[in-house]
Design a protein around this nucleic acid. Structure first.
Lengths: 92, 92
DNA sequence: CAACATTTGTTCGTATGTATC
DNA sequence: CGATACATACGAACAAATGTT
């Protein structure tokens, strides 16, 4: 099981875990780990990966949805919003 | 002479208990009992540990916050300020 | 159609912390 | 030193929609 590229959650830190996770996910999106209009890992997966409660994961996602970085499709998944800021490649 | 770094509170001493506690906590921080950006024990814990009223504990914390040794994050905890002056290890 | 797995939506209970009175 | 309020986090369970076989 590989640990996360971005580091783990620090429960003793001043920043609440859900804020930490929101930052981590935002960084991974910016880095291109997940492409626009594609689903990020499921809540259950993120729970496993970061050792957090599902409520905490959902809260982090809610932050990014509020920021316009992600959008949720019920019963389908959570996706990276396309027009956040993607360097459009001049015709590939 | 400063109060014992690890001694208990002396209610008969000239120095008020909240000042004694502030000194004790400052000493423990200097000693590295709690790392920068990490939470110190909760107020309730300190109440238990030193046999003081919460108001007294909060007063001691307020002193250290005022001195720039600690900072409080509402609903999260009280944390050791990172740039207070951590003795950088003389080369390990 | 049925059965199953996956995923988000929702709600309840419990615990810990600080804030305030 | 109580009592209450609020924010945060964990755990569990169930519902609903979707996709697959």
């Amino acid at each position: 099981m590989e640990p996360d590229p971005d580091g783990d959650i620090d429960h003793g830190a001043p920043l609440p875990p859900y804020r930490q996770l929101a930052g981590i996910l935002a960084a991974r999106i910016r880095r291109g780990d997940w492409q626009p209009n594609r689903a990020i890992p499921s809540e259950a997966h993120l729970v496993q990966e970061y050792g957090l409660a599902r409520a905490t994961v959902r809260r982090a996602i809610a932050v990014l949805v509020d920021q316009g970085v992600l959008f949720v499709v019920p019963q389908r998944g959570t996706f990276v919003k396309p027009d956040s800021e993607q360097p459009s490649m001049p015709n590939a």
